Deep mutational scan, measured.
Amino acid sequence: MKTQEELTEIVRDHFSDMGEAATLYVQVYESSLESLVGGVIFEDGRHYTFVYENEDLVYE
């Protein structure tokens, strides 16, 4: 099982292909040891929320 830090790095790496991230945040109260819930805000103003669970990243 991966730590939240490892899950955060996986998510950060995925979003790095989409541009320069200004902020990546984790909603600790919705996350667990198995999943990471949060969002990313890019330098150009785009904002996505995400759920990373079971090696699957879903974002909108």
Results as ranks from 00 to 15, higher is better:
1 M>D: 06
1 M>W: 11
1 M>Y: 13
1 M>Q: 11
1 M>N: 12
1 M>T: 12
1 M>A: 11
1 M>G: 11
1 M>I: 12
1 M>H: 13
1 M>S: 10
2 K>M: 08
2 K>E: 02
2 K>V: 07
2 K>W: 08
3 T>D: 04
3 T>L: 04
3 T>P: 04
3 T>A: 03
3 T>C: 14
3 T>S: 09
4 Q>S: 04
4 Q>L: 15
4 Q>T: 05
5 E>T: 07
5 E>Y: 08
5 E>A: 12
5 E>P: 04
5 E>V: 08
6 E>M: 10
6 E>T: 06
6 E>W: 09
6 E>C: 13
6 E>F: 08
7 L>F: 02
7 L>A: 02
7 L>K: 02
7 L>W: 06
7 L>E: 02
7 L>T: 04
7 L>I: 10
7 L>P: 02
7 L>M: 07
7 L>V: 05
7 L>C: 09
8 T>N: 04
8 T>Y: 10
8 T>R: 07
8 T>G: 03
8 T>H: 05
9 E>D: 10
9 E>L: 10
9 E>H: 09
9 E>N: 12
9 E>W: 09
10 I>P: 01
10 I>K: 05
10 I>H: 05
10 I>Q: 04
10 I>V: 06
10 I>Y: 06
10 I>C: 11
10 I>T: 05
10 I>G: 01
10 I>S: 02
10 I>E: 05
10 I>F: 08
11 V>N: 02
11 V>P: 01
11 V>C: 08
11 V>R: 00
11 V>W: 04
12 R>F: 08
12 R>I: 08
13 D>F: 12
13 D>W: 12
13 D>K: 15
13 D>P: 03
13 D>G: 12
14 H>T: 06
14 H>E: 02
14 H>N: 04
14 H>Q: 07
14 H>R: 11
14 H>W: 14
14 H>L: 15
15 F>R: 01
15 F>Y: 03
15 F>P: 02
15 F>W: 04
15 F>G: 02
15 F>K: 00
15 F>M: 04
15 F>E: 01
16 S>R: 12
16 S>Q: 10
16 S>C: 14
16 S>G: 08
17 D>S: 15
17 D>L: 15
17 D>C: 15
17 D>A: 15
17 D>E: 13
17 D>N: 14
17 D>R: 14
17 D>H: 15
18 M>Y: 09
18 M>L: 11
18 M>D: 03
18 M>P: 03
18 M>C: 13
18 M>R: 06
19 G>A: 05
19 G>V: 05
19 G>M: 07
19 G>I: 05
19 G>R: 04
19 G>C: 10
19 G>P: 04
19 G>K: 03
20 E>D: 10
20 E>M: 13
20 E>H: 12
20 E>S: 12
20 E>I: 14
20 E>F: 13
20 E>L: 11
21 A>S: 11
21 A>T: 13
21 A>R: 08
21 A>C: 15
21 A>F: 14
21 A>E: 08
22 A>S: 10
22 A>N: 09
22 A>E: 07
22 A>W: 13
22 A>F: 15
22 A>V: 14
22 A>I: 14
23 T>M: 12
23 T>H: 13
23 T>A: 08
23 T>D: 08
23 T>E: 11
23 T>Q: 10
23 T>P: 06
24 L>R: 00
24 L>S: 02
24 L>V: 13
24 L>Q: 02
24 L>P: 02
25 Y>Q: 05
25 Y>G: 03
25 Y>V: 08
25 Y>S: 04
25 Y>T: 06
25 Y>I: 09
26 V>C: 09
26 V>W: 06
26 V>P: 02
26 V>T: 02
26 V>A: 02
26 V>K: 00
26 V>L: 05
27 Q>W: 13
27 Q>I: 15
27 Q>T: 15
27 Q>L: 15
27 Q>C: 15
28 V>Q: 11
28 V>C: 14
28 V>D: 07
29 Y>L: 05
29 Y>F: 10
29 Y>S: 04
29 Y>E: 04
29 Y>W: 11
29 Y>N: 03
30 E>R: 03
30 E>I: 14
30 E>Q: 09
30 E>S: 13
30 E>K: 08
30 E>W: 12
30 E>H: 11
30 E>D: 14
30 E>T: 09
31 S>A: 13
31 S>L: 07
31 S>G: 09
31 S>F: 08
31 S>I: 08
32 S>I: 09
32 S>W: 09
32 S>C: 13
32 S>L: 09
32 S>M: 10
32 S>R: 06
33 L>T: 14
33 L>I: 11
33 L>S: 14
33 L>D: 08
33 L>V: 09
33 L>N: 13
33 L>A: 11
33 L>E: 09
34 E>Y: 07
34 E>I: 09
34 E>W: 06
34 E>S: 14
34 E>T: 09
34 E>F: 06
34 E>K: 07
34 E>Q: 15
35 S>M: 15
35 S>E: 03
35 S>F: 14
35 S>P: 02
35 S>Q: 13
35 S>C: 15
35 S>L: 15
35 S>I: 15
36 L>T: 04
36 L>C: 08
36 L>D: 00
36 L>F: 08
36 L>G: 00
36 L>V: 07
37 V>M: 09
37 V>F: 07
37 V>D: 00
37 V>L: 07
37 V>W: 10
37 V>T: 10
37 V>K: 12
38 G>W: 08
38 G>T: 04
38 G>E: 02
38 G>L: 11
38 G>D: 01
38 G>Y: 03
38 G>A: 05
39 G>Q: 10
39 G>L: 14
39 G>D: 07
39 G>P: 00
39 G>C: 15
39 G>S: 11
39 G>K: 08
40 V>A: 04
40 V>F: 04
40 V>N: 00
40 V>T: 02
40 V>E: 01
41 I>Q: 03
41 I>S: 03
41 I>N: 00
41 I>L: 07
41 I>R: 04
41 I>A: 02
42 F>M: 07
42 F>R: 00
42 F>Y: 05
42 F>V: 01
43 E>G: 09
43 E>Y: 07
43 E>W: 08
43 E>S: 12
43 E>A: 13
43 E>L: 12
44 D>E: 02
44 D>A: 07
44 D>V: 04
44 D>W: 09
44 D>S: 01
44 D>F: 10
45 G>K: 01
45 G>A: 01
45 G>P: 03
45 G>S: 02
45 G>Y: 05
45 G>F: 07
45 G>M: 03
46 R>A: 04
46 R>V: 03
46 R>T: 09
46 R>F: 06
46 R>H: 03
46 R>G: 03
46 R>E: 03
46 R>N: 02
46 R>K: 05
46 R>P: 02
47 H>W: 08
47 H>E: 06
47 H>S: 05
47 H>M: 06
47 H>F: 07
47 H>G: 03
48 Y>W: 06
48 Y>E: 00
48 Y>M: 04
48 Y>D: 01
48 Y>I: 07
48 Y>H: 01
49 T>V: 11
49 T>W: 11
49 T>E: 05
49 T>F: 10
49 T>Q: 06
50 F>E: 00
50 F>C: 05
50 F>S: 00
50 F>H: 00
50 F>I: 02
50 F>W: 06
50 F>R: 00
51 V>L: 07
51 V>Q: 04
51 V>H: 09
51 V>D: 00
51 V>I: 12
52 Y>V: 04
52 Y>N: 00
52 Y>R: 00
52 Y>L: 08
52 Y>F: 08
52 Y>Q: 00
53 E>H: 10
53 E>D: 05
53 E>G: 05
53 E>Y: 10
53 E>N: 08
54 N>G: 08
54 N>F: 09
54 N>I: 05
54 N>S: 06
54 N>Q: 07
54 N>M: 07
55 E>L: 09
55 E>Q: 12
55 E>M: 10
55 E>I: 06
55 E>T: 07
55 E>H: 14
55 E>S: 13
56 D>S: 15
56 D>F: 14
56 D>Y: 14
56 D>E: 15
56 D>A: 15
56 D>K: 15
56 D>G: 13
56 D>W: 13
56 D>V: 15
57 L>P: 01
57 L>Y: 03
57 L>C: 10
57 L>Q: 02
57 L>R: 01
57 L>S: 02
58 V>Q: 11
58 V>S: 10
58 V>T: 13
58 V>Y: 11
58 V>G: 04
59 Y>A: 03
59 Y>P: 02
59 Y>G: 03
59 Y>R: 01
60 E>I: 13
60 E>L: 10
60 E>V: 13
60 E>D: 07
60 E>A: 10
60 E>Y: 13
60 E>G: 07
60 E>K: 11
